[in-house]
Amino acid sequence: MKIVKEALAGTLESSDLLVKVSPGSGTGLEVVVSSEVMQQFGHQIDHVVRDTLARLGVTAGLVVVEDKGALDCAIRARVQTAVMRGAEAQTIDWSALS
């Protein structure tokens, strides 16, 4: 899936996260994560974000994640939504979201 425009998903409420995607500089994939629980879970959040992007076939763009203590399922959901909005996807391949 190719990110063609800037898009947001999520909120900055507790137990949620805000994900911002953009096409970036066109030189590959860059993921930037900040979190209230960075020390304990930063590595896990980064892993979930990258795994979700890989399943969606995203190989290029800038993905900025501001986490407020979300569960993995919410992280996946917000990344998926931001990517679909950024890719202007009209249909969903549900198997890529499982």
Partner: peptide, 14 residues
């Protein structure tokens, strides 16, 4: 609507 649908899809798998 789109974000809620995807969030519920993921939450149901908890």
């Amino acid at each position: 609507k789109d974000s809620a649908r995807i969030l519920v899809f993921n939450a149901l798998q908890l």
